[in-house]
Nucleic acid binder design. Structure first.
Lengths: 186, 186
DNA sequence: TTGTAATATAATCGC
DNA sequence: GCGATTATATTACT
């Protein structure tokens, strides 16, 4: 971390370091601040109470919450490189060990069990998707009722389906361009 | 496949079967359309001219035309509905064709590439956020300079961060209530 | 291993 | 600025 950034990040730690952000400017002439870090927890409706409580308990017990403030969405490689501060992670020597560590971490965090759509459900979803890839809440609810799925699952499905469509399109576009650049055999 | 599902899936095949999904609802046509196509012109500073030209070039290879004076980011369905003056669009006979047309258009329509903040940037932002979740323009500019980011990115970050905080708080509140209602096992 | 459901969050729109 | 959505990138599971 650069010296500049250290100066900035010292703020939250109340270090007596000189800092180029003035307190006044950071406070923005005293605006409301109502953040209670302890209150942040994720709601997992598909977990029953006992399970939720257990997860919470584990998170409190285990020193693995240090990444809650840091984006989990990073390049795995970069991530691995940059996680030098995580002692527990560093202790994992083999890839397998690290995988296990990560898996346990995710288990403690709680993740909705993967939904396995049936063939008929997919068929209907695909048919609707062909006609409208952006169904509104009403259509999604209709689908949810008819297919016996949560509306949330429908929404995620369409989201992922759009991403897939886009990916496929990008790839085909790339192919077209590539072929146009090398019209002859190659 | 059940009778219900057949009713649904018939849609994409244009079968004259009675169907409990209305065409309007599937197409999302039963929603209000409130855009004024003539007045919409979005500025995309991150698309420089060369890039635009390249995109245009790609568009020329495909049965897609470019749209310089339409919203770059709208609901494709709404968008498609309101572009009745577009001759190419009118040439698309079937709903599917129109959807495809519209869909491809939206791919070329620009969206700012997702910014990937670095760990150190997030760290600083989080530290400032803890102290002040509503930084004024001056603090945002300071941060922008120090973190080598656009002030705009900073602003959006704080906006999303506040939303996240709110969400987390709501969820934890919900959990508390839920647990207080079912304090025993089960 | 691949495909994809799920997740987190940056970006966008309409108010 | 907010709430609601969408896009995007990544993770993790089958």
């Amino acid at each position: 971390m650069s010296a500049e950034l250290q100066k900035v990040s010292c703020l939250a730690e109340n270090k007596p370091t000189a800092c180029s952000f003035s307190i006044e400017s950071i406070l923005g002439l005293d605006k409301k601040k109502d953040l209670n870090p302890a209150s942040i927890r994720t709601y997992r409706p598909w977990m029953d109470n006992s399970c939720s409580r257990e997860v919470t308990a584990h998170n409190w017990r285990l020193p693995i919450i240090r990444y809650d403030n840091i984006p989990l969405q990073v390049h795995p490689v970069k991530h691995a490189i940059e996680r030098e501060g995580d002692a527990q992670y560093e202790q994992c020597q083999t890839t397998t060990e690290r995988m296990t560590y990560k898996r346990e971490l995710s288990w403690y965090r709680g993740r909705r069990p993967r939904t396995a759509f049936t063939r008929s459900q997919i068929e209907v979803l695909e048919n609707v998707f062909r006609v409208n890839s952006y169904p509104g809440i009403d259509v999604r609810e209709e689908l949810a009722n008819k297919l016996s799925l949560d509306e949330d699952r429908i929404q995620i499905w369409f989201q992922n389906r759009r991403a897939k469509m886009k990916r496929c399109h990008r790839e085909s576009q790339f192919l077209i361009v590539k072929e146009s650049l090398t019209p002859q055999e190659q």
